[in-house]
Design a binder for these strands. Structure first.
Lengths: 254, 254
DNA sequence: TCAGAATCGTTCAACTTTAATCATTAGTAA
DNA sequence: TTACTAATGATTAAAGTTGAACGATTCTGA
């Protein structure tokens, strides 16, 4: 096998799996460890992957430091099932808005609809989308250091150039009286804007955000449907009264 | 079999398989290795395929093409020394524009100046910058699948909101009569804009781009200084006559 | 914290591919 | 036929690629 083929294969495998072990590659490509090592080195130099001890990983895993709740396997599965359900809301030829954030990022691998156009304020989202050959517009503006989301007046100006069939929006708090909330005023403004420009809006969130209230209000509960994995007992009736809630079936994972 | 036939066949085989080995071609076309080699050479000169060690591959493979010369370690070192010199042009409190592309990406690790603000159309650049706690604005617009640069009318509109002390711009061709050139019209327009908005512009490029001419003209030679690793003998006088050239000292690597 | 295990970077020799050169063959026109 | 040119095939030194060895480094579990 030629070096070129091997390297293309490595990239392909990585796109599917996000991380890959040295030994797996040695087996799959039937080459020596030295050779794989050299391939990885070269691909890293070309900024096509990132080497890690024992293998390689995709370039940018949004948040380097895994935040508290992404840690447990349980939560990963929750997020994936939420993401899968969200992706099913996307129809052929849709124009959608995809908010920056880890939950919305998970949606991308599950998108099956054809001829979709996506607008996003998450650079990581944009890169994953074009890798999947999905037409993608990125909003301009100030890049926030911690979340790497694009925000600010330029982003607000840019987003108003579009209209969406559907918007998928992340939140930090869901409360029956305060509605949807998030810590950063700039991000809140952008999310509100996205919601107003969309025919239908979905808030994607795991169940830990219920009864939480963050600094900035985005909009009222009834303005968007919620896609989540479960509703805590204590606020079940309050929620279903005020808005539409879709519960992801965790056993339906791929 | 005529040379013409053979070459057409080679291209046909390549279109089907995307990569092909030397030995396979020798067998399939029943010609000597020398002949096949000459055919491949000619086809490469006509930009119809790309030769790789042990065979040939399609030109625009699915994913990555922009940096086929980033391969050798030698070239990596060249790019790093160019990048280092470029970074030294940045002073405290500067507002700079950083064009998308691999050469400009290398500049970021070498930035030492304090309180710098950077505007870029490369999402990867933006992420690296905020990781270094450098204030960064990303242009919005359409994301190009192969280079992952942001381009188009929105990007043009966004960039005009800024003024720069210095712009660092990548190119694909440097020619004494045609000036600086690049393959994509959209990118060319953006680069031209960046240059016009900057007090001073630097073109960063390794020496392989001299005497090359790409599809779209950006601007004339004298409009920007060049930062490179060396000038080929044949165009040394032509270049130094028409513009300012900075040569990076390769031994000054960190 | 420590020791053992796994992984990494470097070096080297065997091997393969390439580029350059030269001899041979085929085709062409006088 | 003969002389000339272009294309092909063969040879060989140089360059590139590969796998294995080995010490250095990092990870892991006690």
């Amino acid at each position: 096998m030629l070096a070129e083929e091997r390297q293309q294969l490595i990239l392909k495998i990585l796109t599917d799996t996000s991380v890959v072990k040295m030994q797996e590659l040695v087996q799959m490509l039937a080459a020596s460890e030295s050779t794989i090592r050299r391939d990885l080195q070269e691909l890293e130099n070309r900024h096509l992957l990132r080497r890690i001890h024992g293998g390689a990983s995709l370039l940018r895993k949004l948040n380097e430091e895994p935040d508290m709740e992404t840690k447990t396997l349980k939560n990963v599965q929750q997020k994936k099932s939420i993401a899968k359900l969200a992706a099913q809301k996307i129809k052929d030829n849709d124009c959608i808005y995809l908010d920056a954030g880890t939950t919305t990022l998970e949606i991308i691998p599950f998108i099956r609809a054809a001829n979709v156009t996506v607008v996003t304020n998450g650079p990581a989202h944009a890169e994953l989308l074009v890798r999947k050959r999905i037409l993608c517009y990125l909003l301009g503006g100030l890049m926030k250091p911690n979340t790497k989301a694009v925000v600010g007046s330029i982003a607000m100006q840019n987003i108003n150039l579009f209209r969406f069939d559907t918007a998928f929006i992340g939140v930090n708090g869901i409360d029956s009286s305060m509605g949807y909330t998030t810590p950063d005023p700039e991000e809140a403004a952008l999310k509100r804007c996205a919601h107003q420009l969309a025919s239908s809006s979905y808030v994607v969130s795991d169940s830990s955000k219920f009864s939480e209230i963050s600094f900035c209000k985005m909009f009222d509960l009834d303005k968007a449907a919620i896609i989540t994995d479960q509703i805590p007992e204590r606020c079940q009736s309050l929620m279903t009264e005020k808005t539409v809630v879709y519960i992801a079936d965790r056993s339906a994972d791929s």
